[in-house]
Design a protein around this nucleic acid. Sequence first.
DNA 1: CTGAAAGCGCTTACAG
DNA 2: CTGAAAGCGCTTACAG
Lengths: 343, 343
Amino acid sequence: MPTIRDVAEKAGVHPSTVSRVFSGKPSISQTTRQRVLAAADELGFQPNAIARSLSIQRTNTIAIAVSHAYQGYFEDVFFPQVMQGLLEITYKYGFRVLVAGSSGHADEITQLLDIVGSRQADGIVVLSNRFDVDLISALQNQNAPFVLLGKPDPSHAGCAWVDSDDAKYTEQVINYLLGMGHRRIAYVGGDPDVLVTKERLRGYSAALQNAGIQPLPEWVDYGFFVEDGGRQAVRRMSRLGELAPTAYYAANDLMAIGVMKALQEQGLRIPADVSVVGTNDSLLAVHAHPPLTSLFVPYSVMAARATSILIQSILAGHMPNQQVTIPCNLVIRASAGPPPVLS
Amino acid sequence: MPTIRDVAEKAGVHPSTVSRVFSGKPSISQTTRQRVLAAADELGFQPNAIARSLSIQRTNTIAIAVSHAYQGYFEDVFFPQVMQGLLEITYKYGFRVLVAGSSGHADEITQLLDIVGSRQADGIVVLSNRFDVDLISALQNQNAPFVLLGKPDPSHAGCAWVDSDDAKYTEQVINYLLGMGHRRIAYVGGDPDVLVTKERLRGYSAALQNAGIQPLPEWVDYGFFVEDGGRQAVRRMSRLGELAPTAYYAANDLMAIGVMKALQEQGLRIPADVSVVGTNDSLLAVHAHPPLTSLFVPYSVMAARATSILIQSILAGHMPNQQVTIPCNLVIRASAGPPPVLS
DNA sequence: CTGAAAGCGCTTACAG
DNA sequence: CTGAAAGCGCTTACAG
């Protein structure tokens, strides 16, 4: 591999001059620039990015950590959509994204701290945020630029984040169902320890309360984002008999499909007998029977925004501090309608 | 950020000694090791990975390039499954994966060459392989370790690759359909310029030929991996009347679903009137109506294998040269059955 | 087992 | 506009 010195020798200039032409410094005469470029071309020279990084103390790389151990993660829309947003923006700025595998939540933090601590990346986008471990303080101690995808817990209210407006749009979904006449509405959430699950519950409760409805505790269940979680929710709620829900809102499409299938196996028609709304507007929703009304969450846009904020603050040399809430969008299909008229 | 020198000073040793304890060299006495570790701990020292990389000429990173511009890419199972395989193995070896966005196929090559040329990564896994641009020669000129996911064209038969056995397993799918009595079988492929499409066609033709069947040219169509491609294939083939296929094999599940929907809209029942088989065994197949029989292609395993080969050869200091073919697996569900008995 | 020195391949403040 | 020199933070062959 030829270095800057080989090029300098061939072009008859000092290595620093070669450096200047390749790092785009303005103070180079046209003639020497051309001489250098010609020499570099002949030698097949390409600047060593690692050496440059060491010198300028920047890698033009941002990092994420993901748990490769959890298979469902890679079947879901979240990860690929996030990658798309990350890549779109990093590309625009000439950055790249460094991905660290991890064996679970705790290890994700280890990986992230290792990457920023060893200066392998200039900043990170934090994809998961479990409040049981204090990642944020650790990151702040490292003085590492980061932005969260998802809100932090209140004790870290000052840090940078981008989140979808989960409470508000869940409330809107419930209002949509209320508007069609439903009064008994179920909420099937994901992992109850994760903030988004609580935010959705907040929106759910607010909507029902505004409508003067006191939800039964049995109308709330957690399906952990798997199909069977949706089925089990239906099984449990069916036992309520007259008080069973006439509409279900599920926090992802896979659970919503589990709900639909369980209901259909009981001989119930959707949406004539029971309505179902999912989340994420995935291909699964498009091709469900009936096509599933679903709350689209723009992960790709969120990730793009987070990446913009991160890179801009890296370039400006300060810590990111913006906080952005991104709207969602209810995509209406055929799985929700008015409740059956009581005879 | 404290450096090796700060630690050395605090511990009262030479920087090279600190380096030795952090790079795991054996020749360090227990007492000085402990002194160094204590000092490092107090200062919050973490070795700078970039400096280390420059010195040892290795980054412990492998790279991929993906086109962020093509949305469908991130809705498909290929990318996330590949990432899972990559991360599983890189994690195991203490490597990470650097992802470069790109604006299209040609740019993917630019990105890859830039990364290896600038020594940002030790090697690459090549995810896409368009024979219209000679990526492989370029990579070989750079002396960059790489392994292809997918076979190269014959002029580069010597390089390292991992591929699924597309021809063989497509042949098996067709044999499965022949075995149930089908004689008019359609093949709906992806991009006809891509090798896998040709390989599948080869398997398709071989199976029919073995059965003594001369397929109509009209039974072969290309749906470019989108639902509407499947629908259009049905539209065109329906015009054949008596000679229309009684079974379709589609090269991904989305096209297969397009095929099913188009057929169902014509009032045909699946599988009573027409059989359909998809590819990838995605969630879409599981939840289709009827559930879709689908050829599972283990992208995650393929990527893991490619990554193993790559990293092992990087560590051993030679170019990768293994060639591996990975079996697929036909997952039988309800969308394929015997053809209708002619009255 | 440990130190002193040279080197990895760039960048940039300082002169001229 | 260009050169000479020091520096980024490690590693390692060479002595002892």
